[in-house]
Design a protein around this nucleic acid. Structure first.
Lengths: 161, 161
DNA sequence: TTATAATAGTTCCAAAATGAACGGTTCATA
DNA sequence: TATGAACCGTTCATTTTGGAACTATTATAA
């Protein structure tokens, strides 16, 4: 392994670690907010996604949140029992479920945001020092990296039955 | 909320999502590699860190891996029982533990890498399309974002620091 | 010195997360 | 339509996780 390769590997390691580092912080903040409001992390995640569009299928929430569907199902169940969310069959497709924020859910979520700004505001503050162009490039690089990693999995890692 | 603010929030949301997206892929790859080799994710993570320097305190591994110390302790315990790692008190400080890769551990890890390249190589491939300057900027932006997020540590940071 | 606080790691166990199997629904093809 | 595959969500059982309390050691203060 020559010098150049060694440098490449080191840069790669640092970059990987930096992803972990940012992510650890995001997860920690999300967890704090969730716990303070008697929600689990998946539950708060779901609320964040659903509140955005007021109505959304469970399937779409799964795609956006990357939660395994059993986790998703149970988390939704809890939210419904808390009265924060309502389940409703999609008209014309009895397989899918629409998730709708209830009155109570909306109030609940708004209160969370008043308390501590919520993850979106905190994150927004954290990226504020970056220029608009930097933010755009960051997004593009992430999307590309995600795509590349995804490609590997479907190519090599599909020993699923 | 005016147009500009709305755009800012949207960009922020996308960026946050892109972090989740990359991270989900990294975690899934790590998980696949770990499971294929009868290790848990924390265990594989620990091996990756320790192999790098052959010898390292448990404390340092905690700082680098971001694992809660109870998780870390149990994972290390498993690795020791598998004979892949050895515990050794730090000379001059009986509180700290040195973690040392055993012969068997080194072989084990090398085999993993031969099988599928390991996460480092895969990740390296995923960032290959980026220019060197882009990679540097990406790293810098991540470090900055992590630092900014770190500032929002709630008073009760009973993990490690 | 002694007392108190901080640190590293372990243990315990309740809570959280999730893989696998399943039930009902829709789609594709004949 | 019939059949089989694919899909969406749920349930169940099991594993994983991580907070809190604990032991042992070291650091700091009085």
């Amino acid at each position: 392994m020559n010098e150049n390769e060694k440098n490449q590997l080191m840069q790669s390691s640092q970059l990987l670690h930096s992803f972990f580092s940012v992510n650890k912080n995001i997860v920690r903040i999300v967890q704090n907010i969730a716990v303070e409001n008697d929600l689990t992390v998946p539950q708060y995640t779901i609320l964040m996604i659903v509140i955005h569009s007021k109505e959304m299928t469970q399937k779409k929430v799964g795609e956006q949140s990357f939660l395994p569907k059993s986790t998703l199902s149970q988390a939704v169940d809890g939210l419904v029992r808390l009265g924060l969310l309502e389940r409703q069959q999609v008209v014309g497709n009895r397989r899918e479920m629409n998730l709708i924020i209830s009155e109570k859910g909306e109030r609940y979520f708004k209160d969370i945001h008043l308390q501590n700004g919520g993850i979106h505001e905190l994150f927004q503050a954290a990226i504020k020092p970056l220029s608009n162009m930097q933010r755009e490039e960051l997004l593009n690089m992430h999307l590309q990296i995600a795509k590349n990693l995804e490609a590997y999995q479907t190519t090599q890692g599909d020993e699923m039955k």
